[in-house]
């Protein structure tokens, strides 16, 4: 971070806005620090609305991905927190909507599907889940989780950076988890 930037301790809001500006310019160090700081803020906020730790981490990761994908929409002339929490509120609302609809469905369908426990059925389900992924994510998942390659090796094979491959694999896990939870 630049010397002239506001200090994190004395002016956290100013520091976050400055860090986001640097992130928009491509400063990955400032971005990592900002995402770590934002994760703590978001965890406290989300804990008020979401009970399970796994669910909370899922929603937090979804917020961080949305922050990343929408980072061009942050207006450097405005404070960072309203932008961040608007995204967090939106992702949280989506999660709560999904949860309510899933719970309603679970109440409506009270019989356990017996076939789901059978191995061939599970394999078919996993295959369907993999087929539903975009090619780039399926490839990342296959190299890392099915073929057990290292991130470095898989990235070289696919022809992308290690960071990109990790993001693709992460998106694949999330998509698979969502598919299998349906």
């Amino acid at each position: 971070m630049e010397d002239a930037a506001p200090s994190k301790e004395q002016d956290p809001s100013g520091w976050r806005a400055a860090a986001m500006r640097l992130a928009q310019e491509g400063d990955s160090g400032a971005y990592r620090e900002l995402l770590d700081d934002s994760s703590s803020l978001l965890r406290r906020y989300l804990a008020k609305h979401i009970r399970g730790k796994d669910d909370l981490e899922d929603v937090l990761q979804e917020v961080l991905l949305s922050v990343h994908r929408g980072r061009h929409s942050y207006d450097p002339g405005r404070p960072f927190e309203p932008w961040l929490f608007a995204i967090a509120r939106n992702v949280k609302a989506d999660y709560l909507r999904r949860t309510i609809s899933r719970q309603t469905w679970e109440v409506l369908v009270d019989e356990q599907p017996e076939q789901a426990a059978q191995p061939e059925s599970s394999a078919r389900l996993l295959s369907e889940a993999l087929d539903s992924l975009p090619e780039s994510q399926r490839e990342a998942f296959r190299h890392l989780k099915i073929e057990g390659r290292s991130v470095e090796e898989a990235a070289a094979l696919v022809g992308t950076t290690e960071g990109n491959l990790r993001v693709r694999a992460h998106r694949a896990y999330k998509a698979l988890r969502a598919f299998l939870a349906r």
């Binding site: 928009q24 994760s39 981490e57 990761q61 980072r71 061009h72 960071g163 990109n164 992460h170």
Partner: peptide, 22 residues
């Protein structure tokens, strides 16, 4: 610091590219 979330933060930071703010 949840491990998955920390991994994600690392991934996002390492794959960061500059963007032009709207």
């Amino acid at each position: 610091r949840d491990t998955d979330t920390a991994d994600l933060v690392d991934s996002l930071a390492s794959s960061l590219t500059p963007v032009r703010p709207i």
